[in-house]
């Protein structure tokens, strides 16, 4: 019996499916991404963050003076305070999706980075999780910065706004996972464009700028299936202090999104690089 064999036996690892796709070391993939951020285009990063801020200033402050207050969960809040949490959730989504789609798309289709990683003990789940956690960090960073802006202009209306921070992590995690899961099936730039083709209407319609009650019931059901709507409702509840048990469902929704994304990304990496 070889030394390796002996150590494997001693460890008694028996969960073979997970064992064959996961080495428990996504941290190494993350720190690699961190070192590689030197080659990041910071202008793109900054624009991703500035976009929601511009919406907040132009629509929230500008248009808001015409609109006055909005009813959210029985509470009257200023228009700016109504759209700010929606933009907060959107900025977390933007950061996460940008990282997990564009960057991953290039690595999957043009680079050989993943091939090199997968020749080491790292498995596809280490690679997927490492990349997703990095995207999550970027999403969370966007969110955090945006929340700073919100607090500065007095748009966090309740102490529960603090809970929006972990909520942002969950939202970014969900979008990063699903983003990587979906992009791992894409082969062309046209397909990549589709992501943004989907994101824009979702951004405009997910009760971002007006309450969902304006829609007829049929449309409402569709909107309520979209992830950004769940993210926005979750964050809005927390920053405006309208806490209901429904918030928990949003968390469950994102947990499901994480699971689906991770399974898709892992399966796909395996199919692409371990064939």
């Amino acid at each position: 019996m070889s030394a390796v064999e002996a150590s494997v036996r001693a460890e008694g690892r028996s969960s073979r499916w997970l064992g064959s796709v996961f080495a428990g070391n996504p941290g190494a993939v993350m720190s690699r991404s961190w070192l590689a951020t030197r080659s990041t285009n910071w202008l793109v990063v900054a624009s991703g963050f500035l976009e929601p801020v511009l919406y907040l200033l132009s629509l929230g402050v500008g248009l808001g003076t015409l609109i006055g207050t909005v009813d959210t969960g029985g509470r009257q809040v200023s228009y700016a305070a109504f759209i700010a949490p929606a933009l907060l959730a959107t900025s977390a989504m933007n950061g996460a999706v940008m990282d997990s789609t564009f960057n991953v798309f290039f690595k999957l289709n043009f680079g050989k980075l993943y091939e090199g990683m997968l020749a080491t003990p790292l498995g596809p789940l280490d690679v997927a999780l490492g990349e997703i956690l990095m995207a999550l960090l970027r999403g969370a960073l966007y969110g955090l910065a945006f929340m700073g802006v919100m607090a500065a202009v007095g748009l966090t209306l309740s102490w529960t706004a603090l809970l929006a921070l972990p909520a942002l992590l969950i939202i970014a995690f969900g979008f990063a996972s699903l983003g990587m899961g979906v992009v791992s099936f894409m082969k062309t730039f046209t397909q990549l464009d589709w992501i943004f083709f989907v994101l824009l209407p979702m951004f405009l319609l997910s009760s971002t700028f007006f309450p969902i009650t304006v829609y007829p019931p049929a449309v409402r059901i569709v909107i309520e299936c979209l992830p950004l709507w769940h993210g926005i409702e979750l964050v809005r509840g927390l920053t405006t202090g309208v806490i209901t048990p429904a918030l928990l469902w949003h968390v469950v929704y994102f947990a499901g999104m994480v699971a689906v994304g991770l399974v898709l990304a892992t399966t796909r990496l395996k199919a692409l690089f371990l064939k």
Binding site: E5, G19, F22, T120
Partner: peptide, 18 residues
């Protein structure tokens, strides 16, 4: 190294240079 790569991929790869 005495192991089946179908089952012990990460363990085997940890001992290889490629």
């Amino acid at each position: 190294l005495g192991l089946d790569p179908n089952r012990y991929g990460p363990e085997i790869r940890s001992q290889l240079g490629v």
